[in-house]
Design a protein around this nucleic acid. Sequence first.
DNA 1: CGAGTACTTGACGGGCGTCAAATGATGTGG
DNA 2: CCACATCATTTGACGCCCGTCAAGTACTCG
Lengths: 242, 242
Amino acid sequence: MPVVSGGQSKPPAIRRIASLAPLSDAEISMLARASAEWTHLTARREFVIEGDPVPQMQILLSGWVASVRQLADGRRQILGFLLPGDIIGLCPQPEPLALSTLTSLTDVSVCPAPRSAPHGSLARAYAMAKALDEAHHLAHICRVGRLNAQERLADLLLELHDRLELAGLTDGGSFELPLTQEILADALGLTQVHVNRTLQLMRRSGDLDWKERRVTLHDPSALAVKIGRDRVRVSALQSPAV
Amino acid sequence: MPVVSGGQSKPPAIRRIASLAPLSDAEISMLARASAEWTHLTARREFVIEGDPVPQMQILLSGWVASVRQLADGRRQILGFLLPGDIIGLCPQPEPLALSTLTSLTDVSVCPAPRSAPHGSLARAYAMAKALDEAHHLAHICRVGRLNAQERLADLLLELHDRLELAGLTDGGSFELPLTQEILADALGLTQVHVNRTLQLMRRSGDLDWKERRVTLHDPSALAVKIGRDRVRVSALQSPAV
DNA sequence: CGAGTACTTGACGGGCGTCAAATGATGTGG
DNA sequence: CCACATCATTTGACGCCCGTCAAGTACTCG
């Protein structure tokens, strides 16, 4: 659960938001206060529905969420994943409608996102978050449009690794991946069976390991080079991470 | 080229922007004045490069632009198309870097986009434009991830039709499509050869016609139903068009 | 009229989907 | 603590959609 830890370091979600812009102490404590009002959500709940009005802006504090579209005949496409520190309902237009359904993949906790002052650092952090969202969507188009199964898997896992790293949720190349192969398949535009086969291949070639909900990329940067992946950059002010 | 016509109706680009929010007369004439300072660009020029700083915000007045990513080994993925009335360089974050390369597919004219007052209708129009961009990107993920070749083609052509309609650039189900089959292939995650074959099929089944750079969808709404496509909606304030 | 570009068509192969079933995990109640 | 249901992973056989390679046919333009 979201515990604002005693004295040591920031909780993952806040740590990640703070990495987007140099927040003031006042802004950090706004976030800390907001995260005290967290709510809980169990796994497999559709808590935002495509086409419905977008609810109050929220911060995902812990757990994983998928942004999903379902086709009439049952096919599903996962548009992206939301990780701790990601913002829900960040839409500049008036009376926004949700562009996708949000489903909790795990137990999840969220809290209301503090309103930002017009020109403060928090507003900048939100703008960066929105831009990163867009960058991830574009990366996903490329993945699904032009990469083969192995490249898709590697590329997605590397993106998730980079994003989780900013929240302090990685341990070297290793991190928790609370997804089933079927969910990966729906994200990558593949079938569950083929994802499985591709994973076997990558395990045997030593690229990764995956047991008990934990993935280990044996050499993330080598893998990134191998498939020709660049890190995401959306602003010149940004360190060359995420 | 961009002629602010004598007395009759608004030029396509302005017409489309005005469809996003109820602009005041003052705002409309700001747009008209801005469009008088248009610049020209010939076809096949990369005028924004991925990773470079984003230039001054501009309005695409006429012509088609592709948002492109090129992989190291030569594969290309087109992330989306920009049509007259679309905004270039609309990024809220500070010192933004371009997330994709912009290539003119035809001769193109652009003009600087007027700065919007903080809470005016023009700001709302820009916010809507940004939201529509996002919606189109998400639609593209689904297309490329889960639709087969025929569905991809139909879905993309329907989207382009709907967007051009708002600019007054359609004639029933028919509109100019200044794209080669190779460019369509790069957008749809297919090969040029397979796009060709798919087009033949759809021609023979009576779904569409395409000669001399002009496509005709014989029955757009029937086609939309056939492939299970909904129109894009990003705000409750929006009429159920585009 | 020749060169370039876009479109068309055919033959063939492979990556990935489909169908089906076995094996292994996880959890719940008796 | 075991019986049993449920869910996730694994594996095999087979086939199709789409990619690849190659050649031929229009168009356009200098």
